[in-house]
Design a protein around this nucleic acid. Structure first.
Length: 767
DNA sequence: CAGTGAGCGAGCTTCCGCTTGACTT
C-alpha cells in the first residue's frame, strides 16, 4: 500500500476513497482516539498540568488496525477536520501510531468535493502544534472544572450530581428564565380595532393608541357609533425579504423543531441517517458556507424549476461566536435529488434542507407595504391599517423560515383606496390585551441561546440537553393554562355590547422547566463560583484558546492562571460553605407545634417536621415528582405525612399506599404495584384492587413458560426487547428464528450453556 | 425495586468534544 488516508468519519472515508483512486486507502478514526481516562483527574496539577492520555477500550481495535496499516504504508495522510479538535485528532494519531514526521502529511479541506480533495493532497502541511495546544487547554480546563466542581456538589448538595462549563450554564439559563416568569407581572391595556369593508373586501385597522382603562375605551367606542370615518393618509413603500442562510446544526435543530416538531436528538438521528446514505453533507457544522459546486447545482435547479429570474447566487458569512467552519453548511449532496430512503420523517427533514438550500440561492422577495391612516370624526386619535402585497415571490416560492414568537396579526392585502375617501366601519371592538412573560425554552431555542453565547459545539448541543435532563436538573413537560378574564366592548349594527370574557393563558407543551435540584444547584454555583457560571466565561476562555492557537500564549501558563485561584475557591467552598438545601419554613404543625420545612435531602425533595438538633427526632416525607418543592404549602406537606396509609384488605391482606423510589405504589402481600397517575391521597380500595389484578394479568402475559431445573427455575419471558430466558437474576438471549413457545427445558438449557456469562459492561448505568 | 434524611467512613459518582454501532430485559 502506498498511501493511507485517515479521516474522522467512515461515511466521509467512503466518499473520498472514490475521489483518490487506487493508490490511496482511506480509513476512519471514528473521532478522537485518545482521551483522559474518566476514573481519575488524569491531569498532573503539580507537574505543569501533564495530561495522562490513554486509548479507551472501545478504540483499541481501531488503533490496532490503523497501526498495522500505517506500518505497511509509504505515507500516512492525516485528514481530520481543520479545527482545534481535528488538529488534535491528527496529533494523537501520530503519537498513538508512532509515526515519524517524514512519513506524515497533514491535509485539510472544507468540502467533500473532488477538486477540494485533490487540491488538499497537492498542498500538505505539518501538524500545527499551537492549534493542538489550544485543544489541550480546552480539554484540560473542562476536565479540571468538571472534576473539581462536581465533588463540591456531592458534599454540599447531593451525591451523584455534576457540574461543568457547558451544562451548568445551560441549567442556569433555564432556571433564570423560570424565575423571570415567576416574577412577571402582566399589565393590560385596551386595544381598539375597527373592521371596514371596501368593494366587498374586508380589512381591519387598529387604533394608534391603546387605552389604560375600560372607561376610556367605552367612551371612545361609544363615540364611534355616530362618527364618520375617512382615509386621511395613504402611503405605499417598496419592501423586500431576503432568504435565510443555509442550515447549520443549530438552525437545522431550530427549524425542525418549529416546522416538524422534532426534538434535537431526533433531528440529529435522522440527519445522521441522511448523511450515511449520502443524501446530505455533514450534519454537525457551524458553517453557512456552500461549495461553488453546490451553488452552481442549486442555480441550475432553480432555473429549471422556476426560471432564470428567480436565481441569485450568494455566499453567506457566519455570525455565530466561536464558529470554526471546518465543514460546509448542511445541504443536499445532489440538488436534483428529491426523494430519500427512510420513513416520512427522513423525507420531511430532507425536503426542508433541500428547500432551505435552494431558497438561499434565490432572488429576494419584493413587496409593497401599504399604510393607511383613518380619521374618526369623534376623536383626535386615528386608526392605522397595514397591508403587505407580494410583488415578486422570489425565494418565497420555495421556502420561508419559521419564527419562534407567534404574533397574532398577519398582514394581508388592502383594497384600493384614495385619500379623503369615506369608510363604513362594520364593527368596532375594544379588547383588553395583556403583556406576555418571556417564553420558556424549548430544546431548540435553548440551542439557539447556547450558540449565541458561544457555548458548546454542534456535536454537543443535543447531548448537553440530554445530560441536564438525565441529571434531573431540567424536565421537559407541558403545563395546563389558567383562565383569565378580560374586558370586551363591541359596537356593531345592534349597538354597543359590553361583557367580561375569559381566555386560557400560560398553557405550554413540551418546554424545559427547571427542577428543584436544578434550582438549588444553580443558586449554589452562582453564589460560590460566579466566574464559571458567568454567561461570558466560555467566550473569555475561548479568546485565550485563540491566542494559544496563534502561538501568542503558552497553554500551561494559561491553565495555571485559571487553575490556581479556581482550585483555591473549590477548597474554600468545600470547607466553609453551608449545605445547600433550598430550605423553606412552611409553618407550624398544629398537632405537635413543631416547625414544618420543605428542603432538598440526600434522596431528593422532601418535607420535614421538627429540627435535627432537637431532642425529638424529625419526621420526614418525600415530595412526589409532580410537585414542586418551592410551591408546596403547609397543608400539602401535612398531607404527605399521612403516607403510608392502609386502605383496606384484599384477599385477607392489608393494602398500603405509599410513595417510593419509583413513585406512588400499593403494597399488598409483600408485592408492590405502581398506581401510576392515581392520587395516593384519595385512591379507593376498589381502584387499588383493580390495579393489583391488572398487574397480575400483565405478569402472566409476560411469562411464556416455566420449568423447574433442580433448585433453579427457568422462565421463558416476554420483555421490553422481545422474548428471553431468565434464570434467577441472569437473562439469556433466544437465538433468532426460534419460537419461544417451542422451547422445552432441554432446549433452554442448551441456549444457556451456549451463552457464557457476559462481562458486566458499562458501569455507567443511569436510572 | 419500594424509606431513607444526623454523622461516621468505606467506595462510588463527575467534565467536554470528536465519532458510530452494540446492546439493553
Amino acid at each position: 500500500m502506498k498511501n493511507l488516508v485517515i479521516v474522522e468519519s467512515p461515511a466521509k472515508a467512503k466518499t473520498i476513497e472514490g475521489f483518490l483512486g487506487k493508490d490511496f486507502t482511506v480509513k476512519s478514526s471514528f473521532g478522537h482516539i485518545r482521551d483522559l481516562p474518566s476514573k481519575k483527574l488524569s491531569v498532573d496539577v503539580e507537574n505543569n498540568y501533564e495530561p495522562d492520555y490513554v486509548v479507551p477500550k472501545d478504540k483499541e481495535a481501531i488503533v490496532r488496525e490503523l497501526k498495522k496499516l500505517s506500518k505497511s504504508a509509504e505515507l500516512v495522510w492525516l485528514a481530520s477536520d481543520e479545527d482545534r479538535e481535528g488538529e488534535a485528532i491528527s496529533w494523537h494519531l501520530q503519537e498513538a501510531l508512532g509515526l515519524k514526521d517524514d512519513k506524515v502529511r497533514r491535509i485539510v479541506f472544507h468540502e467533500i468535493t473532488k477538486s477540494a480533495i485533490l487540491n488538499a493532497v497537492e498542498n500538505p502541511r505539518g501538524i500545527n502544534i499551537d492549534l493542538v495546544n489550544a485543544q489541550q487547554a480546552r480539554r484540560i480546563l473542562d476536565r479540571l472544572v468538571g472534576y473539581e466542581l462536581s465533588p463540591v456538589l456531592w458534599k454540599k448538595v447531593k451525591p451523584n450530581l455534576s457540574a461543568g462549563r457547558v451544562q451548568s450554564v445551560s441549567v442556569r439559563i433555564i432556571v433564570e428564565r423560570e424565575r423571570e416568569i415567576e416574577n412577571f407581572q402582566a399589565t393590560s391595556a385596551f386595544r381598539v380595532r375597527a373592521y371596514f369593508n371596501v368593494d366587498g373586501m374586508e380589512f381591519q385597522a387598529d387604533l394608534s393608541k391603546r387605552f389604560d382603562t375600560l372607561e376610556e375605551t367605552r367612551t371612545f367606542v361609544a363615540g364611534c357609533e355616530n362618527a364618520s370615518f375617512s382615509v386621511s393618509d395613504l402611503q405605499k413603500k417598496p419592501g423586500k425579504r431576503t432568504p435565510a442562510a443555509p442550515f447549520t446544526t443549530s438552525t437545522l435543530q431550530q427549524e425542525a423543531s418549529r416546522k416538524l416538531g422534532f426534538g434535537v436528538t431526533r433531528t440529529m438521528k435522522v440527519a445522521q441517517d441522511l448523511y450515511e446514505q449520502g443524501s446530505i453533507t455533514y450534519m454537525r457544522t457551524d458553517s453557512v458556507n456552500l461549495s461553488d459546486l453546490a451553488i452552481n447545482a442549486a442555480k441550475d435547479e432553480i432555473v429549471k424549476l422556476y426560471g432564470e429570474e428567480y436565481a441569485k447566487t450568494r455566499q453567506y458569512s457566519s455570525k455565530s461566536k466561536g464558529a470554526q467552519e471546518a465543514h460546509e453548511a448542511i445541504r443536499p449532496t445532489y440538488m436534483d435529488k428529491k426523494s430519500v430512503k427512510g420513513d416520512a420523517g427522513h423525507q420531511r427533514l430532507y425536503d426542508m434542507i433541500w428547500k432551505r438550500t435552494i431558497a438561499s440561492q434565490m432572488q429576494d422577495a419584493k413587496l409593497e407595504r401599504t399604510t393607511v391612516n383613518i380619521n374618526v370624526s369623534s376623536s383626535d386619535i386615528g386608526f392605522v391599517a397595514n397591508g403587505e402585497v407580494i410583488v415578486f415571490e422570489g425565494f418565497l416560492k420555495a421556502y420561508l423560515e419559521g419564527t419562534d414568537d407567534e404574533t397574532e396579526d398577519t398582514k394581508g392585502m388592502l383594497p384600493n383606496m384614495t385619500i379623503g375617501q369615506g369608510l363604513d366601519a362594520g364593527k368596532v371592538e375594544g379588547m383588553e390585551r395583556f403583556s406576555q412573560p418571556p417564553a420558556r425554552y424549548t430544546e431548540a431555542s435553548l440551542v439557539k441561546k447556547l450558540e449565541e453565547l458561544g457555548i458548546g459545539r454542534p456535536s454537543t448541543y443535543a447531548p448537553t440537553i440530554n445530560t441536564i435532563i438525565n441529571r434531573n436538573y431540567v424536565v421537559k413537560e407541558g403545563k395546563d393554562g389558567v383562565e383569565r378574564e378580560y374586558g370586551y366592548i363591541l359596537l356593531d349594527s345592534d349597538g354597543i355590547k359590553e361583557e367580561v370574557k375569559t381566555e386560557i393563558t400560560g398553557a405550554e407543551k413540551t418546554k424545559l422547566f427547571p427542577t428543584d435540584i436544578g434550582k438549588v444547584v444553580t443558586d449554589f454555583l452562582v453564589e460560590n463560583f460566579t466566574d464559571i457560571l458567568d454567561y461570558n466565561f466560555t467566550a473569555q476562555v475561548e479568546k485565550e484558546f485563540d491566542e494559544i492557537a496563534e502561538g501568542q500564549k503558552e497553554w500551561t501558563s494559561m491553565i495555571d492562571s485559571f487553575y490556581k485561584p479556581f482550585h483555591k475557591t473549590t477548597v474554600h467552598t468545600s470547607e466553609n460553605a453551608k449545605k445547600a438545601t433550598g430550605e423553606t419554613l412552611l409553618g407550624v404543625d398544629p398537632a405537635s407545634g413543631r416547625n414544618v420545612y420543605s428542603r432538598l435531602g440526600r434522596f431528593g425533595p422532601m418535607v420535614q417536621i421538627g429540627e435535627a438538633e432537637n431532642e425529638e427526632k424529625p419526621k420526614f416525607a418525600s415530595i412526589p415528582a409532580d410537585q414542586r418543592m418551592e410551591e408546596v404549602t403547609l397543608e400539602q406537606a401535612l398531607e404527605l405525612f399521612k403516607l403510608p396509609r392502609d386502605i383496606g384488605e384484599f384477599e385477607g391482606e392489608q393494602m398500603t399506599i405509599g410513595i417510593g423510589k419509583y413513585g406512588p405504589y400499593v403494597r399488598h402481600n409483600k408485592g408492590y404495584v405502581s398506581i401510576g397517575d392515581e392520587d395516593p391521597m384519595s385512591i379507593t380500595k376498589e381502584t387499588a384492587m383493580q390495579l393489583i389484578i391488572a398487574r397480575r394479568e400483565e405478569l402472566k402475559k409476560m411469562l411464556i413458560n416455566e420449568f423447574a431445573d433442580g433448585e433453579d427455575v427457568i422462565q421463558v419471558k416476554n420483555g421490553r426487547y422481545g422474548p428471553y430466558i431468565a434464570v434467577g437474576k441472569k437473562n439469556y438471549k433466544i437465538p433468532k428464528g426460534t419460537e419461544p413457545e417451542s422451547l422445552g427445558l432441554v432446549e433452554c438449557k442448551e441456549i444457556i450453556a451456549a451463552q457464557p456469562d457476559r462481562p458486566k459492561r458499562g458501569a455507567r448505568k443511569k436510572k
